[in-house]
Design a protein around this nucleic acid. Structure first.
Length: 278
DNA sequence: TTGATTCCGCGTCATGGCTA
DNA sequence: TAGCCATGACGCGGAATCAA
């Protein structure tokens, strides 16, 4: 990527035409003529004067805008790959895309920043406010209350809610509602802080329409698999959204770069015409 | 206000890639 | 090769939007 429009470019720095050139020596024009974001690329420290808002996106591209209190900034990792590296990157991107896509991998290859590993707003937290809806079955709401409601395919299962007084565990009152009737079943369910049925709480309880409590592990494996897949799908969607955001950022960056290159070409043409004239 | 439409997130299933 | 993981596809429900 070569954009040697001015002297700064020779030092590994390229700057869009609408960026105050004074910024390079710390004398930026606070009344920059354009509010358009400027693309600055640098392999060397760049200093901005105040009155410029500095926005640094994941691609390492800096955008400037008036009225900031930022006084200086050093660009350490700007997006200024040499052409041969871009070819290599493109080749690797193609390789990856021919395989099954992984947003994290693709994003990393694009250089758009690492997709964070954290799950974001997970339904299971450490406060006991877990929310598990495997097969539409169990929902834990705060205050140590668990609601189990019927789902498709769970024949005869009506509504079950459990509440455990205090956090010390112990016996849990299971309130089972069937139609207009209501009764309580004392069972011991290890609810300690956060409920993680995904890891396969060894107790799988099924209430039939007759109110019979049948302890089973028949569907344990399936539940674990469903839970894992559910979590995986959630994570996958999160990564996908992040990936799309990154692509949109990249589009904006490339559009800016394109604009800058067009301007550069225009100015070079003008310069050439001026020199050509006697 | 209300019904229709669109958007978004979720859960589940199917499937291909990867790894032990 | 079996098991696991990541992801596309599909259907569903709720929220948001819009027109009548």
């Amino acid at each position: 990527m070569e954009s040697g429009m001015d002297s700064a470019a020779a030092d590994g720095l390229s700057i869009a035409p609408d960026t105050p050139k004074d910024a390079l020596d710390g004398q930026a024009d606070a009344n920059s003529p354009s509010n358009q974001p400027s693309v600055i690329q640098s392999t060397q420290p760049v200093q901005f004067s105040k009155n410029n808002v500095i926005l640094l996106n994941k691609a390492g591209v800096i955008q400037t805008a008036p009225n900031s209190s930022v006084q200086s900034l050093q660009v350490v990792d700007a997006e200024s790959l040499p052409a041969q590296y871009e070819d290599e990157a493109a080749r690797r991107r193609r390789e990856i895309l021919t395989r099954r896509p992984s947003y994290r991998k693709i994003l990393n290859e694009l250089g758009g920043g690492e997709i964070s590993e954290d799950k974001g707003d997970g339904d299971v937290d450490t406060q006991g406010a877990a929310n598990y809806q495997g097969n539409g079955i169990i929902k834990v709401i705060p205050a140590n209350t668990i609601q189990i409601s019927g789902a498709d395919g769970v024949q005869g299962l009506q509504t079950l809610s459990m509440s455990s007084a205090g956090t010390g565990g112990g016996n849990t009152i299971v309130q089972y509602t069937q139609g207009d009737g209501q009764f309580f079943v004392p069972v011991s369910i290890p609810v300690t802080g956060s409920l993680k049925l995904d890891q396969g709480s060894s107790q799988h309880m099924v209430l039939t329409s007759s109110g019979e409590v049948v302890g089973e592990e028949v569907t344990k494996k399936r539940e674990v698999r469903l839970f894992k897949n559910r979590e995986a799908a959630r994570e996958c969607r999160r990564k996908k959204k992040e990936y799309i955001k990154c692509l949109e950022n990249r589009v904006a960056v490339l559009e800016n770069q394109n604009k800058a290159l067009i301007e550069e070409l225009k100015s070079l043409k003008e310069l050439y015409c001026q020199k050509k004239l006697p």
